[in-house]
């Protein structure tokens, strides 16, 4: 007969309970890992790389993620709006209460990297009375020589097709990227000509990353401010905006 040893038995019970706790923790981790993996796999991967952001990501997330990168500096990055035929007017909302500033003939405005802005496109020649309210989200910056920042603004070139689709009520998500020089297409077209439309299921951020460095995300849809119910979030976050003076001597029309 095995002698009864109470102390040893108590220790064994503690060990059993500890083992059960460890098992429960391990099982919970396993379940969480499986759920996370399922979520990740659902988001898909492009050529072996995982891209958690795509056109369905909520506006502002990409900029916020760029802000948590090591070494991120929220500089003011000039952007230049290029509308079809160089016609139409662009205004940028500078405050959450709907304050807007009209851009001058340069159509250049400096926005803060990592922030999201709401703009207003109007006076479109082919669509009298139509107004579009795109958002612009900067996720990276350029490093031009000092004093040439405005000259090398990031071009946000909208094509007539994109504007037409947006007016029809469709959501246009445009990712503007800096071309990798050795992968650049040997074309002499304008910035708008280097814009390509992909299938709805394609991830434009992933495609832009494969061809260069994503710099900005522009979303144009049919959403308009509701005159009956004021929504402060519609006009952006109130991030700083700088509009260069027309007398700064900036050379217009960087593209051919």
């Amino acid at each position: 007969m095995i002698p009864f040893r109470p102390t040893l038995c108590a220790a064994s019970l503690d060990q059993i309970l500890a083992g059960l706790r460890r098992g429960a923790v391990a099982a919970a981790c396993l379940v969480l890992t499986a759920a996370w993996t399922t979520n990740v796999l659902a988001q898909g991967a492009v050529r072996g790389r995982h891209y958690p952001l795509d056109q369905a990501t909520a506006p502002g997330v990409a900029g916020k993620w760029s802000g948590v990168q090591r070494g991120f500096v929220p500089v003011m990055q000039p952007v230049r709006f290029e509308l079809p035929g160089s016609e139409g007017s662009v205004a940028v909302y500078t405050g959450p209460q709907g304050e807007a500033s009209q851009l001058n003939s340069l159509s250049v405005v400096a926005l803060r990297v990592g922030s999201i802005y709401r703009l207003k496109l109007s006076d479109l020649p082919d669509y009298p009375g139509a107004e579009l309210y795109p958002t612009v989200e900067l996720i990276d910056r350029l490093h031009p020589p000092r004093g040439r920042e405005i000259e090398f603004a990031i071009p946000i070139a909208l094509t007539a097709e994109e504007i037409a689709l947006a007016i029809e009520g469709r959501l246009v998500t445009k990712v503007i990227y800096l071309e990798q020089p050795d992968r650049a297409t040997p074309s002499r077209g304008s910035n708008a000509a280097r814009s390509r439309i992909t299938a709805p299921r394609d991830n434009p951020i992933a495609l832009a990353d494969e061809a260069g460095r994503p710099m900005a995300i522009v979303r144009i849809g049919g959403r308009a401010p509701d005159a009956g119910a004021f929504d402060s979030g519609f006009f952006g976050t109130g991030a700083p905006v700088l509009i260069p003076d027309e007398a700064a001597g900036v050379r217009e029309g960087a593209s051919e």
């Binding site: 056109q55 350029l142 031009p144 020589p145 090398f152 990031i154 071009p155 070139a157 994109e162 689709l165 009520g169 469709r170 959501l171 246009v172 998500t173 445009k174 990712v175 503007i176 990227y177 800096l178 071309e179 020089p181 650049a184 297409t185 910035n191 280097r194 814009s195 390509r196 439309i197 992909t198 299938a199 709805p200 394609d202 434009p204 495609l207 832009a208 061809a211 260069g212 710099m215």
Partner: peptide, 16 residues
């Protein structure tokens, strides 16, 4: 120094 840009556009709608 000669940066050049291009863009990728995706068109979507609620019932796409």
């Amino acid at each position: 120094y000669a940066p050049r840009f291009a863009a990728v556009t995706t068109i979507s709608e609620p019932i796409e």
